[in-house]
Nucleic acid binder design. Structure first.
Lengths: 254, 254
DNA sequence: GAGTGGTCTAGACCACACG
DNA sequence: GTGTGGTCTAGACCACTCA
């Protein structure tokens, strides 16, 4: 029978703990409810605090829990669905998009980003910082890189750094005809600045969405958006606006 | 600048360590090279092994390292791009798709999946297990749920459980006209069975891609695919087949 | 100031791969 | 058997929030 899989594989304690806690969350806790503190929980289950924490970390990664230093551990609401590019998306900053332009400067993009342009070089680019807010909660931070060559009109205007400059860059982008885009999603950990924006600790898990925008046969802009992996589910609607629905009984307790 | 950001915020050791190691990986190590073991590294940096491990975990999460019990820690190659639904995708199992049908049974799907169908009920469904292999490496494990009502012809045939049954289900699906699909990506942790398939430990971080298939105005199938988050970058090509390119070589050893 | 989660230590033992 | 990463312990102190 190959492997009878006797109890030869002792399940790690933290894994078993996670299962137990997960079931307890389903049956005994409401969304938003506060769990006992880590020291109590550890004692209750007869494990070291570090082991208990390993289980909690997993549950937080799966979006089941939310932990805040100085406050406590609460039961998280179901992840919020955030739409990422419905079919043929539009330019960033198009009317009705969900982003708020925060700031803009000129900077040399990291090498990984520079590589995505057709003529990679250590060139300064317009760098627009934006934030995506859903239900009053920042769910994503974005850096949009636009080479000066993509928005030639702008160089003449010479808007000082700041949100106004960001809006100017986006406005210039709209004038181009968007030919297509290209997306990739991968796991990452929040850099210090993004973490701050997302109200998380540095290193928190994030989903990194990299988008290339094409116009005139060239890559004219690259966006790197980092979404909170604990609270977000990225949706890609290929067919109309149907959305994967999760029962909405959550939100706030007590 | 507003906040002068004095050294009032002492960086955690593991965070600093991660940065240092990351830079060392860039400059001093080639892909596939073996790092010193954890005890040595910890001693070298003058920290406890647990702290060193916290840094390594982050780097593994970011796809920079690969750790294998009993073997050691190696420098990971760049993540492999796996295409997930180029524009209007096809049915699962269509010719040329990247999946290998492994098995099929009948089972009641988990509640979270059942909810995605139009008439949620605790109904048994065809449950097809597939694996996606790239470069000889299993990168994803999938469970495809197909209600009996979606493939009415099949019930008469009565194929016994196993790969043949899976192929039969897929064959029947092709006969329907695919009207659209719906995708969501979120972070999860590998269940024990998926972990085994992906050659990872249980709880390893995975990207969970949930797809609904529509035909005849109904949801006729739901796929839950779990991709290794450490080694995969999911690509969504909206425009032709352009692919975000990463140069194959990361860095040279000195 | 009290209580929470976050970081860190210095050990121990276990499961696994490989020669 | 030897060496690796994985799990676990029992402490300690720090950073933060809130009353």
């Amino acid at each position: 029978m190959g492997t009878t899989q006797l109890e030869s594989v002792p399940e790690p304690k933290y894994w078993h703990l996670k299962t137990v806690l997960s079931e307890a969350l389903d049956s005994d806790f409401a969304v938003g409810e506060i769990l006992p503190n880590e020291r109590d929980l550890a004692a209750r289950f007869g494990v070291a605090r570090a082991t208990l924490r390993q289980a909690l970390e997993q549950l937080e990664l799966e979006g089941r829990l939310q932990r805040r230093r100085g406050v406590g551990t609460t039961v998280a609401p179901p992840r919020t669905a955030v739409s990422v590019g419905t079919a043929q998306h539009d330019w960033p900053g198009a009317p009705g998009d969900a982003w708020q332009t925060a700031d803009a400067t000129s900077a040399v993009p990291p090498q990984a980003v520079a590589r995505l342009f057709d003529a990679p070089r250590g060139e300064e680019m317009h760098t627009v910082r934006r934030t995506r807010v859903v239900h009053g909660q920042a769910v994503a931070a974005e850096l949009l890189y636009v080479p000066a060559a993509s928005v030639p009109e702008l160089s003449a205007i010479d808007v000082p750094s700041g949100p106004a400059r960001g809006r100017a860059v986006l406005r210039e982008l709209q004038r181009l005809e968007l030919e297509g885009q290209d997306r990739a999603v991968e796991l990452g950990s929040a850099r210090a600045d993004d973490a701050k924006e997302l109200d998380r600790l540095p290193g928190a898990p994030v989903l990194v969405v990299t988008t290339r925008y094409f116009a005139g046969g060239r890559t004219v802009a690259v966006s790197v958006a980092t979404y909170r992996a604990d609270t977000c589910r990225l949706t890609f609607g290929d067919s109309g606006d149907v959305e994967i629905s999760h029962p909405g009984q959550q939100r706030r307790a007590s």
